[in-house]
């Protein structure tokens, strides 16, 4: 996965970058399966590797497939990114161990979720659709807004080109 990430940043050909990011998503999905987060892994494989690769290829079809060279020096962003990375690693060292039953996150609302008063075997579905129904309603609305935004943006473009053609 690390190799994929490094190659991803070094490549200039955007087609290769798109394919590699799909590969990265699949590797990420296997990591998530290893962490027992099957629902998230499924989403990652379907959205990250599937749909977004297709959409990026579609976008690539509309523009040049070679990345232009950056004019600025890369050192400041590199230093910023690596210092944030070091900070995150330092913070992660303070987290409780993986799957530690005494971790704070397992003491708060999780016991109630796991008692499962809604009687749905998949806890993830129960939490998403029932306990946090408002949250999911908001998410669905966000997805809807994204779709509406895409329609608003690209539709207008279409009518303006048609106008241009009529003008010619």
């Amino acid at each position: 996965m690390a190799i994929t990430a490094v190659v991803l940043t070094l490549r200039r050909n955007l087609f290769a970058v798109v394919v590699l990011s799909g590969l990265y998503s699949f590797l990420m999905a296997t990591v998530l399966v290893a962490l027992d987060a099957v629902d998230v892994a499924m989403t990652e494989a379907a959205v990250g590797a599937g749909i977004s690769t297709v959409l990026l290829l579609g976008a690539l079809h509309l523009c040049k497939s070679e990345e232009s060279r950056s004019t600025r020096s890369p050192w400041l962003p590199l230093a910023l990114a690596s210092s944030v990375g070091v900070l995150l690693i330092y913070g992660a060292l303070g987290l409780p161990d993986f799957a530690d039953p005494n971790a704070p996150i397992h003491q708060h609302v999780v016991p109630r979720y796991l008692q499962n008063e809604v009687d749905v075997p998949n806890v993830v579905t129960a939490v998403l659709a029932s306990f946090r129904g408002y949250d999911t309603l908001g998410e669905t609305t966000v997805v809807f807004t994204a779709g509406a935004g895409i329609i608003a943006l690209l539709r207008r473009r279409k009518s303006s080109t048609e106008k241009n053609r009529d003008g010619k």
Binding site: V118, V120, S130, T140, I150
Partner: peptide
């Protein structure tokens, strides 16, 4: 609860499918 979750999930699926297809069609 089962009925509520079922219909909610149907709603999510329909919207997500529609948005993904719409974006793809547009591009």
């Amino acid at each position: 609860q089962h009925r509520g979750i079922f219909w909610v999930e149907v709603g999510v699926a329909i919207t997500v499918c529609g948005v993904m297809l719409k974006i793809f069609y547009m591009f």
